[in-house]
Write a protein that binds this DNA or RNA. Structure first.
Lengths: 248, 248
DNA sequence: AAGTGGTCTAGACCACAGC
DNA sequence: CTGTGGTCTAGACCACTTC
């Protein structure tokens, strides 16, 4: 807060601003409270609005703030813990998972990385199931599940006008297979236009991308690409997953 | 400004720019190649430099680009898969892990969240060990490991002028304990000044924060906070962790 | 209509790498 | 030194929500 900073210079303004704001959030604000608007904040701290926004972006990335166009900036609640690895080996769609089927279709083209994981040529058809995950009343993740069509011979019929019903049919057929195992990767990504809409965020919002491969009969049978909101989610793994805030 | 775009408007320029650049990276550039500088690129696409930078930031976040001040922007190699969950239950520092001890000290103050995980009051002393993880010759993660001092009675002596030696001593003492289990969380964060230096990034760079809690004797004994470079790392979990990107 | 955050511009200067 | 990316400014307009 000093005035003369003779040799503390090399620290960028937005970085210093961020720490000041972060401390203020801890001491002077409570969850859900709305902050002054960006123009006022910038004026108060004597910086350009762009600089103030750089600090706010960092804080939003860390899950401290939530910004909504047309509304304002509010103090975000602590990140929600979502269980990703239920030690038990089960297919997606098993009873008790937190996902809701949205739609399904048989697609001829899949992203190249997914095709590689499935050990299929990019042109061969696969079932594509879109699902949604909700926690504490808020959407936390969107998913695209790819299943080899030849693994579900009884499910080759795409009939039914209801997209959600088709999705449930594919998921139900999966449960009959033996599951040898699964492996997972987690990386940072940015939300596609569709995922963003499903997650109630803007396109490009940071997401944690969880890629799960399911192995059955000695070969990869399904691949799930789940995108979690990085600002509001904390992924939990292991035995006693997600103690602080979790439903059941 | 260029021509009339009557109804293609709602897509932000930087978003469109990002997809154009992404396609160009796939088709016209190879890994390691350097791109034209930002001023030239901005001029070529007819946008302000700030807008061009917004697109580049997204691509860097997705691990497609690498930018270094004073050098330039290069096409990044595919993300490195790093194994995080070696199904085997072992303490940090067990033979065969990929971490290098850097230093250790006995600290009286620990971050509040860590103290809570350790079920210690924020004031009680703990061992703090800093470690570094290197993969493919590049630093990929920095870690702070917190260990209850009362769990390592034989290690109460902080002697030794060599920081790395002290770190090894703490890790070695850990191995003698029984390990009941461990649980983990993954979330998005931004690099602190120290982590940034260790990771060869700028402060605030996006990182994947892995928090691991080790339980011994029925109570939490150690907590590791590992920060992985989000731009270059893909965390892998499960049995067949981290098989190289290409399957031939 | 008013107020918010989101996008965009055209400049300027700074910090750093390499010659 | 030159050239690069990083920071910062002061303004403008747009998209959205709310009243």
């Amino acid at each position: 807060m000093g005035t003369t900073q003779l040799e503390t210079a090399p620290e960028p303004k937005y970085w210093h601003l961020k720490t000041v704001l972060s401390d203020a959030l801890d001491t002077e604000f409570s969850v859900g409270e709305i902050l002054p608007n960006e123009r006022d904040l910038a004026a108060r701290f004597g910086v350009a609005r762009a600089t103030l926004r750089q600090a706010l972006e960092q804080l939003e990335l860390e899950g401290r703030l939530q910004r909504r166009r047309g509304v304002g900036t509010t103090v975000a609640p602590p990140r929600v813990g979502v269980a990703v690895d239920p030690a038990r080996h089960t297919w997606p769609g098993a009873t008790g998972d937190d996902w809701q089927p949205v739609a399904a279709e048989e697609a001829a083209t899949v992203p190249a990385p997914v095709a590689r994981l499935l050990e299929r040529a990019p042109g061969e058809p696969v079932h594509v199931v879109r699902r949604s995950r909700v926690s504490a009343g808020r959407p936390v993740a969107a998913e695209l599940l790819y299943v080899r069509t030849d693994a579900l011979p009884g499910c080759a019929d795409p009939a039914g006008p209801d997209p959600a019903a088709r999705a449930r049919a594919v998921l139900h057929a999966l449960q009959a297979l033996d599951l040898d195992g699964q492996d997972r990767t987690v990386e940072l990504g940015s939300a596609s236009a569709e995922d963003a809409k499903q997650l109630d965020r803007l396109p490009g919002a940071p997401v944690l991308v969880v890629t799960t491969r399911y192995v059955s009969g000695g070969r990869p049978t399904a691949v799930a690409v789940s995108t979690y909101r990085a600002d509001t989610c904390r992924l939990t793994f292991g035995e006693r997953a997600a103690e602080p805030v979790l439903t059941g």
